[in-house]
Amino acid sequence: MIRIMRLLVTRDLRLALRQGSDAAMVIAFFVITVTLFPLGVGPEPNVLARIAAGVVWVTALLATMLSLDRLFQSDYDDGSTDLLILAPVPLELVVLAKVLAHWMLTGLPLILTAPVLAALMNLPEGGYLVLIVSMFLATPTLSLIGSVGAALALGARRGGILISLLVLPLYIPVLIFAVGAVDASITGLTPRPHLLILGAMLAAALPLAPWAAAAALRHSLR
């Protein structure tokens, strides 16, 4: 089981690193978009500080979404999905491994970049730790939920846009509680309840999303 997981994750990481640029593109989008806000809203430090957590999180959400259409599409196009379904391995495990690889290539770099961008947005000091903790709890959920959307959109024309329409509404609770956690810690309240709810969402998505995405993958071949 562990062996198969490692095998699948290594394959996806190797593919991504060799054809390059997917992860880099996500980070570039994240950085550029956040940089636009001080230019658009104006460099007033208090205004930026108030919207900092929201801007960083909304942009991280969009950056994650941007990378979702490649999750299953290339396997689908070259017939690998057939063979993954036929492999004597639970398809849910395959999906979980692909989601893990996706998170390592997008979620993890986002977490590393977020504090820098938060500083650019003048996020008050008290918010940094909670921002990072909330990202560690919530970005895996984003990848998991995204995998369901990506699997459902397979074979559709304009799949990328369809994924956004499917997935963005489901991202709303994650966004609300993640930003809520950071705001709470800035205003001196405890972020604990928000973080617990983010943890609960992750705990729910971890078994449910691979199961749903696997069902969608099987259906995509019909």
Binding site: R14, L15, D78, G79, S80, D82, L86, P88
Partner: peptide, 21 residues
Amino acid sequence: PEDHRARLHYVGYQDAIKPVM
């Protein structure tokens, strides 16, 4: 279905080959 998958090899019209590997 698991037993069935384990006992078969399928070669389809697509080759499932990753060009960068």
